[in-house]
Each structure stands twice: as C-alpha cells, then as structure tokens.
Design a protein around this nucleic acid. Sequence first.
RNA 1: GUGGAUGUAGCUCAGUCGGUAGAGCAAUGGAUUGUGGUUCCAUGGGUCGAGGGUUCAAAUCCCUUCAUUCACCCCA
Length: 419
Amino acid sequence: MAFKSPKGTRDFYPNLMRVQNHIFSIWKNTCKAFGYEEYEGPVFEQLELYTQKSGEEIVEQLYCFKDKGGRDLALRPELTPSLARMVNLKAPELKFPLRWFAVPRLYRYERAQKGRLREFYQLNMDIIGCTSLTAEADLISAVIEMLCAFGLNDKDFAVGLSSRRLIREFLAAQIPEDKIGQVYRVLDKRGKITEDLFNKMLTDLSISQGAIESINSFLNATTLSELKQMQCGGLLDDAVTELEELFNTLERVGYTGYLQLDLSIIRGLDYYTGVVFEVFDRNKSLRAIAGGGRYDNLLANLGGKQLSGVGFGIGDVVLYELLKEKGLLPEKIYGPDYFIVTFGDVDADLLSFARALRGRGKKVLYPLESVKVKKQMSQAVESGADKVIFFGSDKAPAGHFEVKNLETREQAIVAFDDL
RNA sequence: GUGGAUGUAGCUCAGUCGGUAGAGCAAUGGAUUGUGGUUCCAUGGGUCGAGGGUUCAAAUCCCUUCAUUCACCCCA
C-alpha cells in the first residue's frame, strides 16, 4: 500500500517547490523594499493562546495535542497571537512602531476545498504601535505592489476597503446594542445569499423594516459621497472622514484603479476595530486573496500594553490558484551555468575540473554516470543549464574548451580563464 | 458534520448493449558509437481504488467501504 500525503497537505516536488520559492521570494523582497523586518515564532503554542481570544469552540478547528508533560498545545492556525505574545514580552525594549513580517506555515483542522488546505503558508505584515492612517496606507500599498510584482494588475484584482468602526457606529444608531453581534453574522453572508433571504434573516432578528432598508442602502454604497449623504445626524463623521483620508492618500500615490469601497467586508467577528480590507480577484471566482485591518485591543487582551496594530495576511493557496489562472506561474527553471559533457569517463579529472569552475563562482553540473553524449545533452537541456562544456575534446587546444550555448546553439572554443 | 461529483498506465483521459484493457503525452531502446527540445520505428508499463454480490462472463449492474474533489457549515 502506497502512502499518500495527509488530507489537506501538499508534497512540494521540485516543480512545485520552484513555484513556491518564487512566491516566497516576491513576498519577502516586497517586505524588504518597504523596510519591514522578518521574525518567526514557534510552530506550536499553548492552546490557551488561541482559546483565550476565540473561545473553546475554536478547538474543533485546531490541531491540538498534549505533550509528554501533559501540556495542552496547538499547531498555530494563525501567527498574530504569537506576534502579540512576542511583542508583549519585549515591549519595554522594543522601538515602536514596529514594522515586521513573517511567512509562517499554518495549520487548520477543517475540510479542504478549492483555495483552502489544512497546511498552508501565509505572509503576514504588521505595524504595531502606530495609530496613524499612514500605517494602513503603507500596508495596502505593499500588498498592491507585491501583487503587481507577480505580474497582476488592476484588471485582475482590487482592494476592497471597509471600516469596522463605521459599520459598528452605523448599526448602533439603527438597532439595539445586543443585536449587533448577530447582525454582523448576517451582514457577512450578504454576498452569498439572495436579497430576500438576507432581509428575512434580519426580520427574524426583529429588525424593523425601516432599519433593514437603511442597512441595505448603507451596504450598497460604493462611493464616499453616497455614504456622506446618508449620515445619521453626524454620528458617522469621524469614521467616514477616516476612510476618506485613506482613499485620498492612496489615490494620490497612484492606486486609484485598485481601490473600491466595499462595506460588505466585515472580516470575522472580533479582533478588528478600525479600517478593514480584503483583496479579491475581479472575477470573484476565488475566495479572498488577502485580508487585514486595524486591531486596537488585541495586545492588551493578551495581557500587554494598549498598543494599536494594523496588519494583513496573504495565503499561498489562493494566490497560487490566481497566478495559475492568469498564466503567471514561472516557467523558466533555474539551472546551472554549465553542464559538463564528457567524451570520456566520469572520473576524478572531471570532478576536479568542475571544482575549479565552482572555484570561479560558477554553478556546475555534470553527469553522474558515463553515458552517451547524446544522452548527456538531453540531461543538460533537462537541467536548465545555460551552456555545455565539452570535456576531453580533441578539437580544443590545451587550456581551452568547446562551449555550446544551449539557447543559441552556437559553439565556440574558449580559454579556461574566460569561462 | 451535511450534500454532490469522480476513482482505469507515471500524467490527462477513452472504454458503446456486461463478452478478460485502449489512446495521447511521458519513459526506455533504436534509426544516429562526438552534440539537445523536431521526425520515424520499436519496447516496457494495469490488483480497472478496495471488499462483497448478481451472472456462463463484470472496468461496466447492485451493495458496502476507502480515497480524491467541489459546495454548504466555518473561515482567525
């Protein structure tokens, strides 16, 4: 019986690993271009780190276990609690604001489906200890630049901006405080269900017809001016102004085509308190590519100081699906500079020649067994090598080698020093 | 946890009314013993997911089970 990889996990054969490294490298290069520093935490944490924030029911969605000392642990389903924990521990000596990133491997015990696995990677970028909207602007700018670096553009994706604060304040003006949590859940489903069902679900929560109409027109707003017209006696001024400022900034930087007001974005239930955003593909055929927002209380809730953070995560699985759909996965394989083809045996002479070339900083590959030249040529092409060096050729004078460029098929005699 | 779809060669998939298994690609060898992605020829490769049932006969029909996948629930 052959073993398969466990449900919801992937085997990264070199073909796929190459793509994965491409994704990681664009992620990390973008973070570095923005000056963020990399950090990392443990792959497992105390179970309580997650239950404290989200309640016991989250245990169903976690890979959790007891270690040999009887401690309850869980494989991390997200990195932000670890980040908060790490920041809290060293807060006195850290220089705020922090701009940190990480590429954690994460684990969630749930049914796998398109764009969603049990083991995956996610880039996290966070700013901690900054209340300025520039933090939001910086992160949104980073996610746009990063996606563009993959070859995507404003026809492929957009950033939907919303505000938990605005939605909360709007709802507070419409409906009783104790209903807000339930209403959030319904709002979150709005995109997937019919309008009638949406209205019915709100009616079932004893929301008045007037309030339902008001909620619908609020959520349908696609521009800030629409939003301003429906303000309830100035209650929402600050939250709207905040969004307006963020839009203005990002538009002036040059991201107009990428931005969209989308108040249907709620992002989970707790955790976020201010601006929230999601990146989605224009076809809307995939789940969200990235998502994030501002969290004011997370660090304090985990026993630290009151520090405001903003962050987002972007997973590798949906991004991969999108890049594949758009034909943007890298095809060219990274290969060595030289593949040595020998007319004689693969022996110590060949290996020491390879060693000399590597000493000159070249990436060098050679056949591991003495096989026909024809077959060696195939191996050379297969390896993605730029050039072939013919070793043991009687057509080249001493200290010189026949070199063939595999792309142009041109062949020349080159002195060792010019290799 | 619920519902649908799919399991046949390394990969992508055909397989009609039930009659003991096919193609393309890939692999290997040759045409071509010192030069690669083309071409031609040949060769190898199968527990038809597994188990049971019906039948003279099952990849095909029935039952069970496992796996994969999509959607729902959930989505940090």
